[in-house]
Nucleic acid binder design. Structure first.
Lengths: 212, 212
DNA sequence: GTTGAAATTAGTACGAA
DNA sequence: TTCGTACTAATTTCAAC
């Protein structure tokens, strides 16, 4: 029923799945839901919260781990308390064919919490945590700008982290939007033209997903 | 020695700390280091990894939790496996004095994993996880654009998440950069002018953390 | 997929250094 | 503060149903 599978979109027969991975059912998702907010819960408590037996919980728990659905368990900390209360986003334009170098340099930067390759005007977004604003400036000018692979950077500061969920699940959707009444017709077409804008990949970048 | 405190920067006497919070020493940081990669480790194992007694580990562990340095424990999952393999960043320009409404609407969006208020051209950055690109489009046009508080959006897609650390710690810095040899002089001044750019708050924005 | 009972481990409460 | 030990409670493992 509520099976979720990232494969098997098209082609194949009734059981047209690739042999890799696990089929996640509603129970698996419920486990992931509990673990999201309480990663240190015992498997026994997990079992009763989910409403399954302990043995079943152990089996599924282990399967999720072994299959790589759960990559690791971790903590969430208060960065202000650890002394790294300044957060910045650095948008980086990377010189073509120098991605390997860029990634190598990135690995040597422990203050980088997150880095993603993006479409749009820039090529990558880096999130860093620092003790103060000056350190961000030093990092960008002394370290990032000196990497040949880095063509340009643009830095913005994070003033407030409004929302930070460890992860989202497909099952979340059904809960927050209980019964979508079909009175959407009057809302349809109300989107002010030009209010939103999608940004494709920068022109220099190789083929991405389609456009550009 | 390696005490880290976000308070007590200026003023106060020798022990000029505000009464809030805990002084984190090197041992606390080591605990956070272990917990970052193994959030489900037992306190006993934690104790021997850190090199302290079991009782001490319990005390410090509890203190970190009670003090809010550790906010919660959680898991890290593979979003492709759960069926939400498409990640997008939506940069939002928020209409003045409508932050409250914006935040309220945000809480009703379960697919939003992260939202931060930023300086720069836009006012907020939202990260969402979706099953496919079409869903991102629907979310932006049907849901976000219909919020009066939202003046404009700009969407980019994440092609690859190169690096994703649960968190960074001040103690990370000392490790990855072992002995910085002082041969920086020839690198100094090499930063191409105009290579990087800092972006301040949008001119329209008034007080940062709490207008609306 | 479930239950129950043994073995192990975790969490707590002391006193001593 | 930190450590070491003993005590109690809980969890994991393994068995059979």
């Amino acid at each position: 029923m509520s099976d979720i599978s990232s494969h098997g979109g098209s082609g194949g027969g009734p059981s047209g799945r690739i042999g890799i991975g696990l089929d996640l059912d509603a129970t698996h998702l419920k486990i992931l839901e509990v673990l999201r907010d309480n990663g240190r819960i015992s498997v026994s408590s997990l079992a009763e919260r989910v409403g399954i037996s302990r043995a079943n919980a152990y089996t599924r728990f282990e399967a999720l781990r072994a299959d790589g659905v759960i990559k690791r368990f971790t903590a969430e900390i208060d960065h202000v308390r650890t002394g790294l209360g300044i957060t910045a986003l650095i948008f980086v334009t990377v010189r073509q064919q120098m991605w390997r170098q860029f990634r190598a340099e990135l690995a040597r930067m422990p203050e980088v919490e997150y880095c993603a390759i993006t479409t749009g005007q820039h090529d990558a977004m880096i999130q860093v945590r620092m003790a103060d604003v000056a350190e961000v400036h030093t990092m960008v000018t002394d370290r990032l700008a000196n990497i040949p692979a880095v063509k340009a950077t643009e830095t913005v500061f994070i003033l407030d982290e409004v929302l930070k969920r460890p992860y989202v699940l497909p099952s979340d959707r059904d809960k927050t939007r209980p019964a979508r009444r079909p009175v959407q017709e009057e809302q349809r077409g109300d989107v002010p033209l030009g209010k939103m804008r999608f940004v494709g990949a920068a022109e220099g970048r190789a083929a991405l997903r389609k456009d550009d």
